[in-house]
Design a protein around this nucleic acid. Structure first.
Lengths: 154, 154
DNA sequence: TGCCAATAGATGTTTCTACATTAAATGTAT
DNA sequence: ATACATTTAATGTAGAAACATCTATTGGCA
């Protein structure tokens, strides 16, 4: 359905306003859909994001601050997210020896297993995007990158 | 900056995964930027969304449920959002005579004035999107609409 | 009419977010 | 070496979101 129909707005100030609204609307839609898979496994999108970052480390520990840097939502309180993962035995936390302020985090075997269970659901959602071509997906990605470029403009 | 650099991930499973991550990341970025303008006027993005819907009514009352339908984030608790707007004297609420379960909401003069103050900030953000062409913006919008189409697919 | 399901919105509760503050460890300049 | 700013993470707190439940009203139908 077109964004016009979905939010029942016929006119937009410009194609840019329409795009801004469509970005927010489509992302909420995507997050809501993925949330359904996450809920079944008692995990939040943010916790999932952390788990994926931990897995990406391939066994190497990563500091809390470095996790934050890689997150999609950098305003998250990573410290508390890691707490939640610890409580569920999905991650381990050890204090870093070279810098005792820092904390090293690694994913547990149980965390890896949970990701294995979730992977097909997420991949399924991503694959539904193949209603557009790979080239189109790449093109949108490139344009989104461009949109964020002029962050510090006037 | 490219999404690869921003979230420090070099490889993606597919252009579709990259697009999904980029959508979430770019939308968070946009929301965060707009939040700065909202905060100064003691309003949340959701409250702003409601105010814009009310203004779009051009004086006609709208029911709480119909507001929800038009919102970008339909999982919001519109009842409480309207409470907040009432408390700030930005909206008025009267019970609907034809259906006493329903509630009619209209924007106040003060609400309209707040929107007038906020408009330039939001427009400024939308206009920064003109780093891409209008045609490109329309094209992305169309592709986003397409992505949401296969919602009920296998 | 009387009964029951459906609808509209309000409210309760738990969890999460945003933001500020705190505490400990480190780096740096004198 | 000491003092002070900086960094790193944890914690406190108010408010918001997510989700379920409740209340009032309406609609349908036996």
């Amino acid at each position: 359905m077109s964004i016009e129909t979905d939010i029942k707005q016929k006119k937009f100030r410009s194609p840019f306003q329409k795009l801004a609204l469509n970005l927010v609307y489509t992302t909420k839609w995507l997050e809501y859909k993925q949330l359904e898979s996450f809920k079944e496994h008692d995990i939040t999108p943010q916790q999932y994001n952390v788990l994926r970052i931990l897995r990406g480390q391939q066994g190497n520990p990563i500091k809390v601050g470095d996790i934050t840097e890689r997150m999609l939502d950098k305003s998250s309180n990573t410290s508390r997210l890691v707490d939640k993962l610890l409580a569920k035995n999905l991650a381990k936390r050890t204090s870093c020896e070279s810098d005792r302020r820092a904390v090293d985090v690694v994913i547990t075997e149980e965390g890896l297993e949970l990701l294995k269970v979730l992977d097909p659901f997420i991949e399924d959602w991503e694959n539904r995007f193949n209603i557009i071509s790979e080239a189109e997906a790449e093109q949108i990605s490139a344009l989104l990158d461009k949109l964020r470029e002029n962050e510090n403009q006037a």
